[in-house]
Every structure is written in structure tokens, then in C-alpha cells.
Amino acid sequence: MYDLTGFQRDLLYVVAGLDDPHGLALKDELENYYEKEIHHGRLYPNLDTLVEKGLVEKGEQDRRTNVYTLTRRGQREITAREEWENQYTESPN
């Protein structure tokens, strides 16, 4: 996951947190988080990058709507990232 941009990483987490989201659902979630408009020209190329890297799978809901799901590799990458973050953010007991 080290080679992803911050936006791609956020996008990956949103895909993981929603049930088979479509592009507009992802866009809405990210707009709420970033508190600004996310343009299609930013969203879809970054989704394509996640698909190309094997982290997200792109499927077809209908002729106009694609859905995105996290792959096993994507889940492993998220888990590894969380473990890495936790070593720096968890306070000792």
C-alpha cells in the first residue's frame, strides 16, 4: 500500500467499508470526508488504478453502473497497513 497516494488509500478504505458500492456512492462518501467536491476525473482514474493493482475488483451492476469490491489482496493490504500504523499509535499498557 506504500505506493498508493493518500486519496487512493482513502478510496480503498471506503470501498472496504461499503457493500458493493458504485462510483457515485464512493464519490459521496469521499466528498463528506474531504468536505469538497470530488470530480469524476479524479475518482475514476484512481479507482482504475486500484483495479489494476489487484486491490479492488470492478463488476457491472447494469449497463451504466459499475460496482467495486475489495479483493483478498486489498484486504491483506489494509490489514498490513493497520498493523503498521498500530505499532506507532497504540499506547503501551
Rank of each mutant, 00 (worst) to 15 (best):
D3V: 00
V51K: 01
G74V: 01
E90Y: 08
E90S: 13
G6A: 07
L11I: 01
Y2P: 15
K36P: 14
R73M: 11
H40W: 06
P45C: 10
L26K: 02
G23M: 06
D48G: 12
D10E: 10
T5Q: 05
R73P: 06
A80Q: 14
G6E: 11
E90A: 11
K53L: 04
I38F: 01
L4P: 02
V51E: 03
L55S: 01
E31S: 08
E57F: 00
D19C: 04
K58D: 12
G6T: 03
L43N: 05
G59T: 04
Y33G: 10
Q61F: 07
Q8W: 04
E83C: 13
T71D: 07
L12G: 02
E77P: 12
H39E: 14
N32I: 00
G74T: 01
Y13N: 13
R42I: 00
E82Y: 05
T71C: 10
Y13E: 13
H22K: 07
T65D: 15
E57Y: 00
N86A: 14
E83W: 13
N86T: 08
G6S: 09
L18N: 04
G6M: 06
A25D: 12
Y2M: 10
R73L: 10
Q87E: 14
R81G: 11
Y44C: 08
E60M: 12
L12I: 02
T71W: 07
V67D: 15
Y88E: 09
E52L: 04
Q61W: 08
I78E: 15
L24K: 08
